[in-house]
Amino acid sequence: MDQSKPHPTPSGPDAQPVVCARCGKKSLDGAPPTWTCSVENGTRQYFCVECARANLRAIEGRLDSSWW
């Protein structure tokens, strides 16, 4: 993973919109601190609170989201 690439800031004037990779829910102010971030195949993915809670065991087991 390339650590030099900036990722969306959680909030602030320069925040980028973030979309849940599972259900499509949008957060216009960047990723809230309650959302889960996962890097799969070199791609950063965000999951909303509801999707993360529903798939907590798979996330903790480090399974790719395509599996769950």
Rank of each mutant, 00 (worst) to 15 (best):
D2R: 05
S11I: 02
H7M: 03
S27T: 08
S27W: 10
S4Y: 08
V39H: 04
C48R: 05
A54N: 07
Q45I: 13
K5S: 12
R53G: 03
A54I: 05
P10V: 00
Y46N: 12
C37P: 03
R57N: 13
R57F: 08
E40V: 13
G30P: 14
S38E: 10
C20P: 12
P33N: 13
S65C: 14
C20W: 08
C23H: 01
G12V: 00
L28T: 09
P17C: 06
S65D: 15
V49P: 01
G42Q: 00
L28N: 11
I59N: 06
T9S: 07
S66C: 14
D14C: 05
N41T: 07
L56Y: 07
Q3R: 11
D14S: 09
F47T: 04
R57A: 14
S4H: 07
A58G: 10
P13T: 10
V49C: 03
R22A: 08
Q16R: 05
A52M: 07
V18W: 03
C20T: 12
A52V: 06
L56G: 09
R53N: 08
V39K: 01
I59F: 13
A52E: 04
G24T: 01
E40M: 12
N55W: 00
E50S: 12
D2Y: 03
M1H: 06
T43N: 13
G61R: 09
G12A: 02
C51P: 06
E50L: 03
V49A: 04
G24A: 03
C37F: 09
A31V: 02
K5H: 06
S11P: 04
S38D: 13
R44Q: 14
C48F: 05
D14L: 06
V39I: 08
E50V: 09
D2F: 05
